[in-house]
Amino acid sequence: MAVINTEIKPFTAQAYKDGKFITVTDADVKAAGWSIFVFYPADFTFVCPTELEDLAGLYGEFQKLGVEIYSVSTDTHFSHKAWHDTSPAIGKIKYTMIGDPSGTLTNNFDVMRPGVGLADRGTFVVDPQGVIQVMEITSEGVGRNASELLRKVKAAQYVAAHPGEVCPAKWEEGEKTLAPSLDLVGKI
C-alpha cells in the first residue's frame, strides 16, 4: 500500500460511458486534470450501487472542480453497460465505468484481493501529473461518502495551489489553513 505520492502506472482499459464503449489510458487520465478512481468489488451487488449513485449525484460538483471520475471493477465493460441499462441507481451515472477483467488497474493501485479476483473498496485522488494524493480503503461492507470525497478533493487542490499551507481536520473550503513552521510546534 505504498502508492500515496506515486505516479499511476501505464494502462489501457475498455470502459463504458455515455452509451458508448471507449478506451481509457493513463495518458487520458493525466490529460483530464484531476481524477478520482473508485474501485469496487463487483457489478450487480449491494453496497456498490449505493456508492456509485452517490457519486453520480455529485458528479456535476466534481466536474466544476475539473475532476473526472473513473469507477473500476474487475467486471467487463459489457457488464457495466448491462448494469447501467438495468439498474435505476447505476442508470444515473454519467462518468466513466472502466472494466478491468485482467486486473491490471486493480493490481496497479494495489487493491486486488489475493486469490479472489475482486477489488477492495478503494478510492484514489490523482493530481494532473498523475500522482496519487489521497487514498482510502474500506472493507467490503463499509460504503463511502461522496460529500466527504468532494471535501478531500478540495483540500488536495488547495494544498497543491498553496505550497507551504496544509488543511487541518474537518477543513472546509474558505476556512483557515495552517502554515507549518518551528513557531507552530506545540502550539496547536
Rank of each mutant, 00 (worst) to 15 (best):
L118M: 15
L150N: 08
A160L: 13
N145K: 09
S35K: 11
Q129N: 11
L184C: 11
P180H: 10
D28V: 07
I188V: 15
D43S: 10
T25R: 01
A160E: 08
R121G: 00
L118Y: 14
K176H: 02
R121N: 04
W171H: 03
G115N: 11
A89S: 14
D28N: 13
S35W: 10
R151W: 09
A31K: 15
L52S: 00
L118W: 12
H162N: 15
W171K: 03
H162P: 03
M97A: 06
K154N: 13
S102I: 07
A161D: 13
C48G: 03
W83A: 02
K187V: 15
K17Q: 14
D110I: 06
G66S: 06
D100K: 02
I90V: 14
I90W: 02
V111F: 01
L149M: 14
S139P: 11
G91A: 12
F39Y: 11
V116G: 08
T6R: 15
A13L: 08
I90Q: 03
T96L: 04
T86K: 13
V47K: 05
I90A: 03
R113N: 10
D100E: 09
Q133D: 01
A82Y: 04
G60F: 08
W34R: 06
M97L: 14
I188R: 13
F11S: 07
G19D: 01
D127M: 03
F37P: 02
A56T: 02
S71W: 05
T104L: 12
A82H: 08
G141W: 05
I93H: 05
G57H: 06
L105F: 02
P180I: 09
I36E: 06
D120F: 13
V153A: 07
P41V: 05
V126P: 00
F44K: 11
S79Q: 13
G141Q: 11
F46G: 06
T138I: 05
A42E: 13
T96N: 04
I8F: 04
I4V: 15
L65T: 06
V3H: 10
T138C: 02
R121P: 00
G19T: 03
A160Y: 05
Y95E: 03
Q14V: 12
C48T: 07
P163N: 12
F21S: 09
A179T: 14
F21V: 03
V126T: 02
S181E: 09
F11N: 07
T23L: 02
L65V: 05
S87I: 04
K20L: 05
H84R: 07
Q129M: 01
V29Y: 03
N107V: 11
A160P: 05
A156I: 09
A42N: 11
Y40A: 01
K187Q: 15
V126Q: 01
I8D: 01
Q14W: 08
